[in-house]
């Protein structure tokens, strides 16, 4: 369980405090306890449900339009300048 939590913390780019870790772990353990009951259900011939609506081919034609301006979209940005969004420096 600890390994799983560590991995999830890492891939989600989170930094949890010890208290938070303890509470997440307790929650996960509770979920894990309930999991075996799912295994009792026979799912042999059941396709996993991904889509809520029975729809396919929801498509659009290849036409371009620009109904929003850059300024509209950057109104809520914490940092934006010269048409760019700005974020803390990242080097991979």
């Amino acid at each position: 369980m600890q390994d799983l939590l560590d991995t999830l913390e890492k891939v989600n780019q989170l930094a949890l405090t010890q208290d938070e870790k303890a509470s997440v772990q307790a929650y996960f353990e509770r979920v894990a306890q309930d999991l075996p009951s799912f295994a009792e259900v026979d799912t042999q011939n059941v396709t996993p449900m991904v889509y809520v609506m029975p729809l396919s081919n929801v498509l659009r034609e290849d036409e371009s339009s620009q109904p929003f301006t850059r300024d509209d979209l950057q109104k809520g940005a914490p940092e934006a300048e010269d048409g760019y969004w700005e974020v803390p420096r990242l080097i991979e």
Partner: peptide
């Protein structure tokens, strides 16, 4: 992404 060394931030 454009990394701005001078201002130490990344422009998107």
């Amino acid at each position: 992404l454009v990394h701005d060394d001078w201002r130490d931030l990344t422009m998107v």
